[in-house]
Nucleic acid binder design. Structure first.
Length: 451
RNA sequence: GCCUGUUUAGCUCAGUUGGUUAGAGCAACGGACUGUUAAUCCGUGUGUCGCCGGUUCGAAUCCAGCAACGGGCGCCA
């Protein structure tokens, strides 16, 4: 039973249309129905949203009835046969049943019926067994894989930027302090968990041309929203000999290619999301990735908002900042799809973004998408040392803390840019899930890191 | 950080102007029945009404405090 042939994944089994084979299935009971002559047990193993139907004769049913309730771990040996039932063409006619791990339905915290996502968060150890979480995490895996494949196919190098950092002012948010119990000076000073790999990856971009990061990142902000977590994964490509147009072209290619590949790989999971999580999800995703992404400047976006004549909670107009309500209006109602907003006022963006010729705006862009808001934030970086120093001053950032970053502008500087994409936000966009906590295996939010 | 809501059975929730033994659906349990598909039918209520005080003859219900968990906004991805 050990080794490579220890089981047939249910996903593979269900694609085998040839009846007659001897098969072994391992997994957990999803539901079971017993009667005098014939009984049915549905088993899942995580390889597919579908279950395989196991048929038991009266003798086996009598023997195992008490132990085949929801949640039990089982190994079933039997024949792969035609099914008279209406909802599957083949099924396993069991000859041997082994109860590998017992459970009792009356104690089991999950039930055959619907359970709220909120309640599931209180049992992080069991929620992966539910239909929704099964689909979410299969798609999370496929999305991650497709992201790597997108970059690898285009010759990008994956750079493992550090998790620990002593830089405390990267302009991307509050940081978690890392303390060594006995030695506060372990790193020669305060150390923190990274809020972004972008500055670090630039070093490698200036040596390998096209690079990206893909890893965890940490924000110590007490954000209490369905879109924020203290620990999340981020993708940050950085390309050299490139300008903002190249960054936008890359981001467009990225979103379209990766989304399309993931939908194609997980048809059953997307059918589930489309039916139970977000009605019309597939239509809206397919429409988004087959149309051109809109593109407007920050000034134009503000003009659009002013022209609506709507009463906004926050002020609109050139020079004002785009709030969530504005971003949502632009993506959902005005452009009805993803839209790049470019050329933000300098003071609204990070110090490293490239100053435009108007001396007022920077070559930055955010990609706004329906339901999510900001999914990507990117820019061309300031490659001119004198201008960078000026930006340090204007942003009140101590340039002396970034000598190594300034060095990059001294030794073979080249125009470059990139973007940061919140992995979970993209996952929410393609699955229709409404809360970031429900697309992370173990969500970390303020007050919540138990397990 | 600001604003706001929820907390009653295993789950999802109802519970009137404060009133006697606290309810429904589903789950679970017992039984019947069926090539069934979250099967169906019959039967059974399993509860510190989040916690702690207060008001009252009487509190799930009113008041104060606390806690947990959500939602909106900000910060951002």
């Amino acid at each position: 039973m050990a080794g490579v042939d220890r089981r047939t994944p249910i996903r593979d089994l269900l694609t085998n249309a040839n009846a007659g084979a001897d098969v072994t299935v391992t997994g957990w009971v999803k539901t079971s129905r017993f009667s005098k002559n014939v009984s049915f047990v549905h088993v899942f193993d995580g390889s597919t949203p579908k279950t395989v139907q196991i048929v038991l004769n009266a003798e086996l049913a009598e023997q195992f009835k008490a132990e085949l309730g929801i949640g039990a771990a089982v190994r079933i040996h039997g024949a792969w046969v035609q099914s008279p039932g209406g909802e599957q063409s083949l099924e396993v006619s069991a000859t041997d049943v082994t109860i590998v791990g017992q459970t009792h339905p009356s104690d089991y915290p999950l039930q055959k019926k619907r359970t709220s996502l909120e309640n599931l968060r209180t049992m992080a150890h069991l929620r992966p067994r539910t239909n929704t979480m099964q689909s979410v995490f299969r798609v999370r895996n496929a999305l991650a894989n497709n992201i790597h494949r997108f970059f690898q196919d285009r010759g990008f190098m994956w750079v493992h930027t550090p998790i620990l950092s002593t830089a405390d002012a990267e302009g991307a948010g509050e940081m978690f302090r890392v303390l060594h119990g006995d030695d506060p000076e372990f790193f020669g000073g305060p150390a923190y968990l990274t809020v972004s790999g972008q500055l670090n990856v630039e070093t490698f971009g200036q040596a390998f041309t096209d690079v990206y990061t893909f890893g965890p990142t940490f924000r110590a902000e007490k954000s209490n929203t369905p879109r924020h977590a203290c620990e999340f994964w981020m993708i940050e490509p950085e390309i050299y000999f490139a300008n903002l147009d190249d960054v936008i072209a890359l981001a467009t290619d990225f979103v379209k290619t990766v989304t399309k590949a993931t939908i194609e790989q997980c048809p059953d999971d997307f059918a589930f999301f489309n039916k139970f999580i977000e009605k019309g999800l597939l239509d809206s995703l397919n429409a988004a990735i087959s149309a051109d992404f809109a593109r407007v400047t920050h000034d134009e976006a503000q003009d659009i908002l002013v022209a609506t004549g709507k009463k906004w909670e926050f002020k609109v107009g050139r020079g004002e900042s785009l709030q969530a309500e504005h971003e949502r209006y632009l993506a959902e109602e005005h452009f009805k799809g993803p839209v790049f907003v470019t050329d933000y006022p300098m003071e609204q963006k990070a110090f490293y973004m490239r100053l435009n010729d108007d001396q007022r705006t920077v070559a930055a862009t955010d990609l706004l998408v329906p339901r999510i808001g900001e999914m990507i934030g990117g820019s061309q970086r300031e490659e001119r040392l004198d201008v960078l120093d000026d930006l340090f001053r204007r942003h009140n950032v101590p340039g002396e803390d970034y000598e190594w970053y300034r060095d990059l502008r001294r030794f073979g500087s080249a125009p470059h840019g990139g973007f940061g994409l919140g992995f979970e936000r993209m996952l929410m966009w393609i699955t229709g899930m409404k809360n970031i906590r429900d697309v992370i295996p173990y969500p970390r939010t303020p007050g919540q890191a138990g397990y």
